[in-house]
């Protein structure tokens, strides 16, 4: 935005996102007068085109507080108390941005990021992770290393920084007209995905959620088994991948892991997808890439 000095009328170009809701003091570089600048209210979005935001947090109070804050800034807000609920909301409302708690029950925030980033149809959704108060004596992760989240906010900074962060993220999106996300294309896909949930009765949504939960549990267990196998066998993994005998070298552990997976995961889930096999293959492929070996 452009602001003028009330005394000498010199004009200044200010980045909106750096102006907090309560305003900011500016000192005119020419006449030295100090004056208060305020962010212009966000122009109301055209009807039916409001930006949709999903807020996923265990605390109802938190969700309502953020909802109130965002609705006064013209965003359309949906809330979810846990990861499973958030997933079904995601499918229903197709938000442009998600604000998600790092320690969300059922599916952690960072797992959620991972799921979204793996899904081509959802990969354009912006994600802001919410964490509790940060201990300044400790190191913390940079947002870009948080499983593909776009930004990160600590709880106590929400009143001041959340809206500017959202504006910034969505502006970046708007400034890139050539992004591989033509709205028409998404809309078609969204309708395709949304139709069944709209026509289904609410009673039928429950089994889907339960099934989702079972799948999530199976995926999580498979990932842990794979990571445990890898963590305990780091010395032979590279050899196995280079020589193409990975499964032979790690036979015992993989067998143990598969036994435990079969014991813990219901047969109907195992029949539909072999998550353990999938994550093993995914690990091998990523390791091959890391070692500069072509895919088999």
């Amino acid at each position: 935005m452009i602001v003028s000095c009330p005394r000498c009328k010199t004009k200044f170009k200010i980045d909106d996102s750096r102006v907090p809701p309560e305003g900011r003091k500016l000192k005119c570089s020419r006449c030295q007068v100090v004056f208060l600048i305020k962010r212009r209210p966000t122009p109301p979005a055209p009807m039916g085109k409001r930006i949709r935001i999903l807020v996923a947090h265990e605390s109802e109070t938190f969700c309502q507080r953020v909802k109130k804050l965002l609705e006064t800034n013209n965003y359309e807000v949906t809330t979810a108390p846990d990861g499973i609920e958030a997933m079904s909301r995601l499918k229903e409302v197709h938000p442009q941005l998600i604000i998600i708690d790092v320690a969300l029950p059922e599916v952690f925030g960072f797992e959620f990021c991972d799921l979204i980033r793996r899904d081509e149809q959802l990969s354009n959704i912006k994600i802001i992770l919410v964490a509790s108060v940060y201990d300044k004596t400790r190191l913390r992760r940079e947002p870009e290393s948080l499983y593909g989240a776009d930004d990160y906010i600590e709880m106590h900074l929400i009143p001041k920084e959340l809206v500017p962060k959202i504006n910034k993220l969505l502006k970046i999106e708007a400034k890139a007209p050539e992004t591989p996300r033509p709205p028409e294309k998404i809309k078609v896909k969204e309708e395709e995905v949304a139709r069944p949930t709209v026509t289904e009765s609410p009673k039928e949504e429950k089994p889907e959620a339960v099934e989702d939960e079972e799948h999530e549990k199976a995926k999580r267990l498979a990932r842990i088994i794979v990571s445990d196998i890898m963590l305990y066998n780091q010395d032979v993994i590279e050899k196995g991948i280079r020589e193409g005998n990975f499964y032979q070298l790690l036979e015992k552990d993989i067998e143990e892991g598969r036994g435990y997976y079969q014991e813990r995961v219901p047969p109907e889930i195992r029949k539909s997808t072999d998550y353990l096999g999938f994550y093993l293959e995914e690990f091998i492929n990523s390791k091959r890439k890391e070692l500069g070996i072509g895919e088999a």
Binding site: A131, S132, L139
Partner: peptide
């Protein structure tokens, strides 16, 4: 707790 990728204590 000394690792840079340690999660926050609150979480």
């Amino acid at each position: 707790r000394d690792l840079p990728n340690a999660a926050m204590l609150e979480e």
